[in-house]
Design a protein around this nucleic acid. Structure first.
Length: 579
RNA sequence: GCGCUGGUGGUCUAGUGGUAGGACAUGAGCUUCCCAAGCUCAUAGCCCGGGUUCAAUUCCCGGCCAGCGCACCA
């Protein structure tokens, strides 16, 4: 593990940010518990996310269930798509995607859709070998590995359910209801913060790859024809970009430009994605991501998910590696179309025109009294075929007779018996299946990044000091209150000060244990931005010392101005020098 | 999932075929008028299961967990 990773894991456990779950029973790989500091930091982060991506964007928030029925994931493609066929080499032990091996060696496609034993036979038939060591794979079992956790809904196994592998589907499946709440007006956005579950083969690197994690996802539904974002608020935001073209170039490097330039020069193709890259960059900065260790990386063609046309990741540098902390994707209309198809429900929005359009609409009204006796049982089908033909190819009705084909058989009908006519119809609008722009944040990875990027070391009075330079808004505790010594009534006075600050809504810790310096260091390690010390002068003139974490600078503040001063300091409306 | 390395108080670690020592942290007390000071005392540990042995934290096997590499990451 990197030096940073080790220090972080040690601090995170010792101070209560996060640690592996249920370790008294040996634990389970890929599950983490957020301790008191971590839970608080995570919640602050989620609140800041909500503030930025729900409230300030005017979007809606939703909370769906973690368990959903099988049909949802049949439609979304996760049942197949998250399902891998694995074959293991008996010699070297490497695991391989069985379907990929077969596809590479044959002209077959979509091998994934075949049953396991058939794939196993194909491996034997084509004498496929291990790509790693060349050992024959014939006869080796092909096993299914699904990344989704399966469960049963209710007693028995007749109603399979799955823990959702992404929160997004919980929004998509409710679209027909959500569009009502949006009064059928595009564009609108729906956000959700919640757990997602993936039974990863190999969880790694602390909070970075886990089996249960929190996502903060926004699904922004837009009409690609007419909607475009207002780029004005973000056009001057500077972005560090790593476009696909730079990644494939040997001398490729990060490029810096504003959102406006990125759109103008086509570096970011989708304006909505560009908008969110800008908004998110400012937000990442706000929550304490180090912008020297941050970039936006475009997905390469082969990396794109099956539904996506353009995708950018926000990446943070952690212990020497670049780690994805957020994805910005264009899911097009893929998900809504799939759910419409599988459920038979309406996943479109009716968009009314400014002015109704008058269009000429060819229609038929076949004379069944003629078709019936003439064609017998096929009459109904012929009538349907005439209707389809009238819509698609009205010219066919220009002669005396019209011919439709059904199962390679031609049926000819006199036009006068079809009731063909062209009517003027008023169309007031059209049905549109929205495109979806999806910024998807990994909350656990953000927590990890924020702590990693805040981890600092310096020297105070010749002693080494570790502290977390968290933004005050993110810090689990805003202020620590200490009596200089726990006697002569200082403790009592300090308790009063602490109680008043809590009453004012601040996150306060009280500590009277050990030397004052020790107490400062305790708070430093959990990133508490301010400490207040009650001393003998307090008893005389009702002022206290406020000490700032990063600089260790101190200033005296009257007790009756304390909560106001601290809140202004926290919100950045005042600096310690002014106070 | 495979391979390598490892697993000793809350944390970091020393050590051992006869059940363990330190440092830091924590708690109580003394001391101390602003940055991990000092003194006294206290709390607290050999990942789990099986085997070998009179005896296993130590050796062997299996498991679990962690880190790293590979694979995987629609």
């Amino acid at each position: 593990m990197s030096e940073e990773g080790k220090r972080l894991a040690e601090l995170a456990k010792r101070r209560g940010f996060f640690f592996p779950s249920a370790s008294v029973y040996g634990g389970a790989a890929g599950f983490y518990t957020y301790g008191p500091q971590g839970a608080s930091l995570k919640r602050n982060l989620e609140d800041a996310w909500r503030d930025r991506f729900v409230f300030r964007e005017g979007h809606m928030e939703l909370e769906g269930p973690d368990v959903m029925p099988e049909a949802v994931f049949e439609a979304s493609g996760h049942l197949d798509g998250f399902d891998d066929m694995i074959v293991e080499c008996p010699e070297c032990g490497e695991s391989h995607r069985a379907d990929h091996l077969v596809e590479d060696a044959t002209a077959l496609e979509e091998v994934e859709a075949l049953p396991l034993d058939e794939v196993q036979d194909l491996i034997a038939d084509h004498d496929l070998t291990c790509p790693n060591c060349g050992t024959a794979l014939a006869g080796e079992p092909v096993e299914q590995f699904n990344l989704m956790f399966a469960t049963n809904i209710g007693p028995g196994s007749s109603s399979p359910g799955y823990l959702r592998p992404e929160t997004a589907q919980g929004i998509f499946v409710e679209f027909p209801q959500l569009k009502e709440y949006a009064r059928n007006q595009l564009p609108f956005g729906v956000a959700q913060i919640g757990k997602a579950y993936r039974n990863e083969i190999s969880p790694r690197k602390s909070l970075i790859r886990v089996r249960e994690f929190t996502q903060a996802e926004l699904e922004h539904f837009v009409d690609p024809e007419t909607d475009s974002p207002d780029l004005a608020p973000v056009e001057d935001v500077e972005l560090t970009l790593y476009p696909a073209s730079e990644q494939t170039d040997d001398d490729g490097e990060h490029v810096t430009m504003t959102v406006g330039e990125a759109v103008e020069r086509g570096v970011v193709g989708n304006e909505w994605i560009a908008y969110y890259l800008g908004r998110a960059k400012t937000w990442f900065e706000r929550i304490g991501v180090d912008m020297e260790r941050f970039r936006y990386r475009q997905h390469l063609g082969g990396e794109l998910a099956h539904y996506a046309s353009e995708c950018w990741d926000a990446e943070a540098e952690l212990g020497g590696d670049w780690v994805e902390i957020t994805g910005f994707g264009d899911r097009a209309d893929y998900d809504l179309k799939k759910h419409a198809e599988h459920s038979g429900e309406d996943f479109s929005v009716f968009k009314q025109y400014d002015e109704p359009k008058v269009v000429e609409k060819p229609t038929v009204d076949p004379e069944m009294g003629y078709l019936g006796p003439e064609f017998g049982g096929t009459a109904g089908e012929i009538a349907d075929a005439l209707e389809t033909l009238a819509e698609k190819n009205p010219q066919s009705f220009e002669g005396d007779e019209v011919t439709v084909e059904l199962d390679d058989e031609a049926f000819t009908v006199p036009v006068e018996k079809t009731g063909f006519s062209v009517e003027e119809v008023k169309e007031t609008g059209e049905h549109v299946t929205p495109q979806v722009i999806e910024p998807s944040f990994g909350v656990g990875r953000l927590v990890y990044t924020v702590v990693a990027h805040a981890l600092e070391r310096d020297e105070v009075d010749g002693e080494e000091r570790t502290y977390l330079s968290l933004p005050p808004e993110m810090a689990p505790t805003t202020v620590g209150v200490f009596p200089l010594m726990d006697k002569d009534g200082l403790g009592e006075r300090a308790h009063e000060v602490a109680a008043d600050l809590r009453e004012a809504g601040m996150a306060v810790t009280y500590d009277d244990s050990g030397a004052i310096g020790r107490r400062y260091r305790r708070q430093d390690e959990i990133g508490t931005p301010y400490c207040v010390t009650v001393d003998y002068d307090t008893l005389e003139d009702d002022t206290v010392t406020v000490r700032e974490r990063d600089t260790t600078a101190q200033t005296r503040v009257p007790v009756d101005e304390l909560s106001e001063t601290l809140q202004e300091l926290r919100d950045g409306d005042r600096s310690l020098d002014d106070a």
